[in-house]
């Protein structure tokens, strides 16, 4: 089966090894006999709502983020429509912030978001940098951990009742206070975790592939398990790092 990924602004938002995430999705799809086709959707490119099974948007430095914010606003309708008809979304760091309603930077300037996810972000005075460990429950009763690295000055506050991606076990998370990290609505996930996120969290890479395939097939398929010894070891090291040194200025 072919899975089509729309990679938004790969030439602008690629600061935290976003291509690592794409490589993981691509290989893990191929090992199951699926083909992942990655199409770049950058400044000025049109976004066709029914074209992509998964949209990916990475992180950038403030300068690049401001450069794309305007263009993203022009794609907002297309993205909302794509999500409405079942496309999955993964947004990391700067890309995550742009999916909220707004981002107020250090100088008090407002950068518009597209309002896909229910939160606002305001720059704080200290960067939140370090290893992070989350506990997630994407399906009721199934608890799994995500290990990554965060580096953001934005404090993201979810609306009351909104679902985070996970609960912070160690690290800062969205705002350093709420104990929440990321935001999830259905198949749309935003998170500050890079590292990159997917190599050391293969279960989550597979979850995304299942969501993308579900969009394509109309129902969620089972994926055959893969030998993930290296991934498991990298996850364990990263998780230990978060427990010993995450969440400290």
């Amino acid at each position: 089966m072919k899975i089509v990924v729309g990679h938004l602004y790969p030439d602008y938002l690629n600061i935290y090894a976003d291509r690592g995430n794409i490589a993981v999705l691509s290989r893990r799809a191929a090992w199951r006999g699926h083909e992942l086709e990655v199409r770049s959707v950058s400044v000025g490119d049109p976004l066709q709502p029914n074209e992509h099974d998964l949209l990916y948007i990475g992180g950038g430095q403030d300068r690049e983020q401001a450069l794309v914010a305007q263009d993203l606003a022009s794609k907002a309708e297309g993205i909302l429509e794509a999500v409405g008809e079942g496309s999955a979304v993964l947004a990391v760091c700067g890309g995550y912030q742009l999916l909220g309603r707004s981002y107020r930077d250090f100088h008090g300037l407002d950068l518009p978001g597209i309002g896909l996810l229910p939160f606002d972000t305001i720059a704080g005075d200290k960067r939140m940098i370090g290893d992070v460990l989350l506990e997630c429950e994407l399906e009721p009763g199934v608890r799994r951990t995500l290990a990554g690295f965060e580096n953001h000055v934005g404090r993201t506050r979810l609306d009351p009742g909104a679902h985070p991606l996970g609960r912070v076990v160690a690290g800062f998370g969205n705002d350093g206070e709420s104990g929440f990290e990321g935001c999830r609505v259905g198949r749309v996930v935003g998170t500050y975790l890079h590292g990159p996120l997917l190599p050391r969290n293969p279960w989550f890479a597979d979850w995304l592939l299942v969501q993308a395939l579900a969009h394509r097939l109309g129902e969620a398929p089972e994926l055959i398990p893969l030998p993930d010894e290296l991934e498991t070891e990298a996850h364990a090291v990263s998780a230990r790092r978060a427990e010993s040194r995450g969440g400290r200025h």
Binding site: N14, Y16, A17, R19, G20, A23, I129, G130, D131, F149, N151, H194, G195, P196, P199, R200, L230, E233, A234, V237, S238, R241, R245
Partner: peptide, 30 residues
């Protein structure tokens, strides 16, 4: 402390002749 930079390095030219990679150090698995 953030090792994500290794994913931005173009290591691929090494692959052609590589018979064995020894990954070592605290983040060898990554």
């Amino acid at each position: 402390r953030d090792v994500s930079w290794i994913w931005d390095v173009d290591f691929e030219p090494l692959l052609a002749g590589l018979d064995r990679l020894v990954a070592t150090g605290d983040r060898a698995a990554e």
